[in-house]
Every structure is written in structure tokens, then in C-alpha cells.
Write a protein that binds this DNA or RNA. Structure first.
Lengths: 241, 241
DNA sequence: GAGCGGATTAGAACATGTTTCAATCTGGTG
DNA sequence: CACCAGATTGAAACATGTTCTAATCCGCTC
């Protein structure tokens, strides 16, 4: 990644994206009040941003990380390269933004239809199986997103930390067979210490295995197997009859 | 990573590095027979390669992945850029080669002084604690290597698979309190299915947590804690008195 | 409608990974 | 020693992420 010597931060730097863009499929943004004063970005700016993200995702779906050439993204979204960099700090930033949007979808799905059947073990395995399925449906996109996680700059880090907390919340809820409380602040995690530890380990196993899958080391099925193995070791005491 | 459209493989492509280079600190390569016929590379070629790797590691120690500018590496190792690419396929390739050398060191240490004290749980935690310590001693280098793992091309993949198998061998040996059998081929892993599963899970937890550490999400101590948590959940049945 | 300030654009410029090429060097052979 | 094949060099060229700049546009206020 060619990078000049780091630059002093500037008031006009791209934001850290606290802003949701509305579902990707949504063709129209609700008109609402035309340019509310508190709104951080005007409606046409939101539309621009959405075009950028959509173009990047399209390209990533086809050819993975490398296929997302920012000049192409800019062309496809009818935006100048400079503008693109006004919205996003880097290529990775765009892909992580899209990943966050996927997370929104998953959270909504879990809140709407929490898994409540079977044992905690079964629920956990099923949760990760579904999540893996959703990811593996667009392998190139997933690879691109996973690769974007490896950037390692300070900005990426905070986004990953958030993602991790969001997933942990879902896993803990799944272990308990409850719906996740999406309103509760992330820095005040739910669940007992043990539940959090279990969630942590399962997430770690999942992430590692996903990385292996993304690299081509093993097929999707193995990811689920790893989770089953890990969850079995943790949640099914060997002395159980 | 700027990459032209993929090129057809060529007989003069860089090797997949089955060759060990001798310890990094070794200032001299044993003269031995001057240019043995079977040797894949002449002695001065080995020296060139070593200079390249050393230069890359030096730079990575100071400034991480981005500080390894290949023009600098070429300059410092008194080698033309083109020659560098004759030995290594990419920047990542150099760093992964260095990582493999680190693995050699770890393997030798474990073979020479296997941990045999305490319970399997204690041994496993201690193993990962030491490995984490060794890695965290040079944070920038570690970050660079971890980032190099994310490249995702087919070549990287096989190297990562090998690394994984080598670490798994050490973990299984540690669980058993034995010395690892470095002679045994990697595709014929030691240990029972359960032992392999445990090793797998612990490695996954370790890797994930290392990535988090490398990204700056948490300090070294937390890596060890994650391992302790995971190993505790797996190896210390909750019903134990 | 005129003017202003910020957003946008087109395009150049820069940094760095990667490739290519002609010239030169090197080590071994006759 | 003369010579050849392959390795190496030095330098240029290319691709793509990222930054910069001058000109233009847009939406708002007066």
C-alpha cells in the first residue's frame, strides 16, 4: 500500500463514519426534511456515498480485494477520486464500512428472529453456521473484507473492536437463547463472565477459521466443523452421559 | 498492492523456498564443498538471500510492514531490485520466509527443552505464553509478519498451511508433555483426534488474539489471558473438585 | 438574481510494489 | 586464455493507492 509519510490531521479529514446509510437495496432515501440542520451530510451526499460503497462491493464480489481499483470505483459511482477520499480514508475503509452494514443486517435478523431452540451448544453452532453461510455466499467479497481487516492502522483498529463487541453481543444472546438487546451500549456487555469468555473463544475460533477459509485452506464446511469442535469441547462436558 | 494482470508461470520464477538459510546470526556459511552439484543455490547466492532477508527484517523491526520498502531492502542488501524478485515473489514472501525461520528456532527450542512439568493445561498455557513473549519482543516485526499473512494468494496459503501444521505439532507435543518429533512428516499428525481438536482450538484462539494484539486492540498480557481462558474452558472440566 | 463558501471535479503528481530489458559480470569449460 | 550460459545490475516503465491543485459547480443567503 503506497503511503506517503503520515500527514497531520485536518478538520476536513474523512469522518469515522458513525452514520448509517440505509439498506443497500433501498433505492431511495426518504426525502424527510430537505437538509435538516443537524444532519451531518446532505441527502445527495448520502447518495454519493452509497454509490461509492455499492460500486466497491460490486467490484469486490467479482474479483476480491484487488479488483476494487479505486479509479474504477470512482468512475462507476460518478464521483471524482478526490471526492472518494473525502468520504473514506482508504480502500480498506470502504470495505470495512460495507462490512459494518452487513453486521447491521445480521443484528436485525437476530433481533427479529432470535434462536431459542435446543441447547446452548446447538444454538451457538447454528448461529455460526448461519453467519458462515451468509459470508460464504459471496466468497470474493468476504476475502476482500477479511483482507481489509489486516490493514492495521489506528482507524481500522477501532472499527474492528466495535465489530467484535457487536458479534460478542449476538453470541452471548444466542447462548442464553434470548434476543440481543441492540439498545444496550456496547461497552457494557451482557452476560456472565463465563458467558463472555465462551463467546470470546468461539469468536476467536470462528475468525481464525474464516481466515483459513478465505485463504483457501479449507472449504466452508470446515469452518462450521471447527466451531462445532470448539463449542463441543467447551459446552459439552466430557463426563456428560 | 499494485499488481499487474497475472502472468503465466515461468521456469525462472522464484522458488517456493524449501531451502533453509542457516541461523540469521550466523555470520559465515560453512564453506563445505565449493558449489556442490546438487545444491540449488551457490554459496554466494545463499549469502545474497540472507542479506535480503536480514535487511527486510531490520526494516520491519523498526517501522513494520510499510517500512519495508523494497528499494531500501535492495539497497541495503547490495542487490538489484530485479535480483530480489528473482529470489522472492513479493514483499510478503520475504516476510513469510523470515517467519518460517522464526518457526525453526521455536521448534528447535521445544525439541531441546520440552515442557514436562505440571498439568496439560499448565503446559499449554506456558507454551503459548512463551511463544507470545517471543513474538511481542519485536512488535513491529510481528505486525509486519501478521500483515504479510493476509496477502491471500495461493502461494501464501500453502506456507500458512505448513506453519499451522508445524505449530499444531508443537501444541500436541506440549499437551502430552513430550518432545515434538520433528522428523515425522507433517501430513501425518501425532496425537488423538481429541488432542488435535484441542490444539486446533487453542491455536485459533491464539491467532485471533495475536491479530488483535498486532492491531493494537489489547496488550500482550491479554493474549495470554485469552489462551488461559480458552484452555481453562476446554481442559479444566467445571465439575472438577 | 448576485454573490459567497464549501463541495466537487478533472487531472496531474507522487510513492511504492512489480515487471522488463539491454548491458555487464561471473564462474565454469574447452 | 577465449567463450558461453546464466546471474546480476541499473534503470526505466507500469499499475495502483493516495495526495494536491486550480477551476468549476451547488446551494444558500441577501
Amino acid at each position: 500500500m503506497p503511503a506517503r509519510p503520515p500527514r497531520a490531521p485536518d478538520a476536513s479529514d474523512p469522518p469515522s463514519h458513525p452514520l448509517p446509510l440505509g439498506a443497500r437495496a433501498a433505492k431511495k432515501v426518504e426525502p424527510a426534511a430537505p437538509a435538516a440542520p443537524g444532519a451531518r451530510l446532505a441527502a445527495n451526499q448520502l447518495r454519493r456515498m452509497r454509490r461509492i460503497v455499492d460500486a466497491a462491493v460490486d467490484l469486490a464480489e467479482k474479483g476480491g480485494f484487488e479488483a476494487v481499483r479505486l479509479r474504477d470505483v470512482a468512475d462507476r459511482s460518478d464521483v471524482a477520486l478526490g471526492t472518494l477520499y473525502k468520504y473514506f480514508r482508504s480502500k480498506e475503509d470502504i470495505l470495512l464500512f460495507a462490512l459494518n452494514e452487513e453486521m447491521d443486517v445480521l443484528e436485525q435478523a437476530m433481533a427479529a428472529r432470535p434462536s431459542a431452540n435446543g441447547t446452548a451448544l446447538e444454538r451457538a453452532v447454528e448461529f455460526f453456521r448461519r453467519a458462515t453461510r451468509a459470508i460464504a455466499r459471496r466468497p470474493q467479497l468476504a476475502r476482500a473484507m477479511i483482507r481489509a481487516m489486516a490493514a492495521g492502522d489506528a482507524d481500522t483498529v477501532m472499527k474492528l473492536a466495535f465489530l467484535q463487541l457487536r458479534i460478542a453481543r449476538l453470541v452471548v444472546a444466542t447462548l442464553r437463547g434470548e434476543a440481543p438487546d441492540l439498545a444496550k451500549p456496547l461497552d457494557q456487555p451482557a452476560g456472565s463472565a463465563t458467558e463472555q469468555a465462551i463467546a470470546q473463544v468461539l469468536m476467536n475460533v470462528w475468525f481464525s477459521s474464516l481466515v483459513g477459509w478465505a485463504a483457501g485452506l479449507h472449504p466452508e464446511r470446515v469452518v462450521t466443523e471447527h466451531i462445532r469442535t470448539g463449542a463441543g469441547l467447551i459446552l459439552a462436558p466430557p463426563a456428560a452421559p
